[in-house]
Design a protein around this nucleic acid. Structure first.
Lengths: 128, 128
DNA sequence: GCAAATTAATGATTTATTCAAG
DNA sequence: CTTGAATAAATCATTAATTTGC
């Protein structure tokens, strides 16, 4: 879709001696996780870490640095995208038809009176 | 004031063939919303209806009946539970926020501010 | 086999929400 | 009513897969 010429929009990669980026060339503008890093992250995610805390992010970052270059924000973004795309996938499965309807919403101002009134009404008449 | 007429459950529920409008088996004692109904309700919620009025409940109920069996009290309870779930989620977020105090460090559960802090820190460190 | 062209994945940003503290 | 804190949804942009013509 995004048909672009490969444009070097890179911001600050010019003068630096690209020394020891173990996995990918550090001229790339974005982090590309190594297979080991991905495996590690997936395992953490599957084992229950969905939204890591700051401390967890630091730990994971330190751990994954053994496999290649990585920073805290990469980990944060990874988990964020992981959650989002899992939800997306789950949701795509159940959305099928979508019928436009009049979403006329009036003044909201729900009052507790209304709620309690409703509940009384419901419970009064609503015993199935 | 709050004259909410309980949606008449009588006519097309009992008179009709029960397998006609069945999503899950009607023998279940409680309502199980269909995916379409959930999508519809979520959209209403997201578009601003958090605590529907009696009239809104009637409208929504009538609308959702196209997708399966549903009653007014189901809609009312759904919105009530939806709000409660949202609050629960926010509370969990607050808890996880408090378990790491070092917000002065780089990564927190990064907000936009924190991200920009990270970016500054990075470029500062990147240029030797 | 091999690159150029195209498509699919996915990292990174921006925008719109939420609840509740002030 | 306004604002703080923190996303999650939506979107943008770049990299990897793959398709295609030679």
């Amino acid at each position: 879709m995004c048909t672009y010429a490969v444009v070097p929009v890179t911001s600050n990669e010019q003068g630096r001696n690209s020394s020891d980026c173990s996995y990918s060339h550090n001229r790339s503008s974005r982090w590309t996780p190594t297979p080991e890093q991905i495996v590690h992250l997936e395992e953490l995610y599957r084992s229950g870490i969905k939204t890591p805390t700051a401390q967890q992010i630091r730990q994971v970052t330190a751990r994954l640095r053994n496999y290649g270059r990585v920073e805290g924000k990469n980990i944060f973004y990874w988990f964020q995208n992981r959650r989002a795309r899992e939800r997306q996938k789950t949701r795509r499965e159940l959305v099928s038809m979508h019928q436009s309807d009049s979403k006329q919403q009036q003044q909201q101002t729900l009052t507790n009176n209304t709620i309690s009134c409703l509940r009384e009404k419901e419970s009064a008449g609503g015993i199935i």
